[in-house]
Computed example of a mutant assay.
Amino acid sequence: MTQTIVVLGGAYAGIEISHRLLKYTRNSVKDLKVILVSKNSHLYWNMASVRAIVPGVLTEEQISASIETGFSKYPAEAFEFIVGSAESSDLDAKTVTIATANGERTLNYDHLVLATGSRTVDDQVPWKGNGTNEQIQAMLRDTQQKVAAAKHIVVAGAGATGVETAGELRYEYKDKEVVLLSADPQILGGDVIAGNAASELKKLGVTIKTSARVVGHNVTADGQTEVTLENGEKITTDLYLPTMGMRANSEYLPAKVKKEHDFVDVDEFYRVKNVENVWAAGDIAWSPRGSFVATQKQAGGVAKNLDLILHGKAPIPVKLLPVDPFLCATGRGRGAGRINGFKVFSLMVYMIKGKTLGTNHLPGYIDGSSF
């Protein structure tokens, strides 16, 4: 009898879990079938989106690769790839309804993996891969054109994405004014590396405004954007790039499996609470927080637990990293970072993250050789 595992989401977590199940678990669970559902036909390496908005720096092939091609080595009876999005679910009946180009399709599962991630509140910026490959690439090209034409750019939100975006822009363009707005008194939420990151950005020429919470923006008659701050100040800019605000892609799920801000509630095994045979990994769980390194550990842990369950064994707690790393690139040369509370050298941040923003790992993710 076929054991069907439906994986929702074709980004970092969904890709890794699917490959691990097919490469390792199916060697002994011969009737295993993995169905991977992704709104995007390609894996979008969104970690590099902050650099991809700069024209001529990264090619489409460096940030995007075909999922179907990467999984083509697996037999048809073991794997199915569906380009579509989850519209609804009945977790008691163990079904999910998928919207595809050819209409709706209902999938039955033995185990369900939730890896649909999160999205930015503003859907006009390419920080997340929430759309088709064609939509994302068109958004990137449009943003690149706006970046090239702008003389003044406002980056709103001084978390990691905002800091890295401001750094990338000012590193490339010394003749453009780049303003970074932080709602908090310090960038990066006052993290221990906030001062180092601010220093690196100021060296590049980024203007940082703290305690500057955005409460609204509107496009003016001449095509510029007027950004309104909480204190009443208004800033007129050629290009407004918001980076703040994350929302879970969980609308297709019942309320009983969600926690604050609609993220999915999981236990120490990354099994979804209040329902059977449902697992989650990556940003949709936001546990302890959304990050690439956390997603890697969660995906590996969920794949391992599914392997154990399918072999009649009990799951084990998912082990995250024993340390808490936080690395923030500031342009293509330097950065700021820490491991736990200990700061690391700028050059180390560049070598570990800033040099490629992980794009060198894209081929290994797609074909499964990284796992």
Rank of each mutant, 00 (worst) to 15 (best):
D324T: 14
V121S: 13
G205L: 12
L188A: 10
N133C: 05
E68T: 14
A52N: 13
T4Q: 15
S66E: 03
T220G: 02
N133Q: 15
A160Y: 01
M351F: 14
V83I: 12
D307R: 06
Q186M: 14
D265S: 09
V293Y: 00
I17V: 12
G232H: 06
V275R: 11
L310G: 01
T120H: 04
E172A: 15
V125F: 07
D222C: 07
G56R: 11
A99D: 14
S66Q: 01
L43K: 00
D184Q: 13
R213N: 12
L239E: 02
W286I: 00
E233I: 10
E251C: 03
F81C: 09
L347I: 13
L107M: 11
P363C: 07
E168C: 03
L107P: 04
G56N: 12
I316G: 06
G232K: 11
I352L: 12
A285Y: 09
N274P: 04
L107Q: 08
I366S: 01
G282P: 13
H19Y: 03
K128M: 11
L140P: 01
L91T: 12
R170H: 09
A160H: 01
P363F: 01
Y24Q: 12
D324A: 09
P363W: 00
T95K: 15
N305W: 14
G245F: 13
P322G: 08
E200F: 00
V54M: 15
T161I: 09
L241I: 15
N40C: 11
M47Q: 12
L327R: 06
E77F: 07
K73M: 12
I98R: 03
G10H: 00
T59V: 10
K146P: 02
G337P: 02
G84I: 02
Q145S: 13
K128W: 00
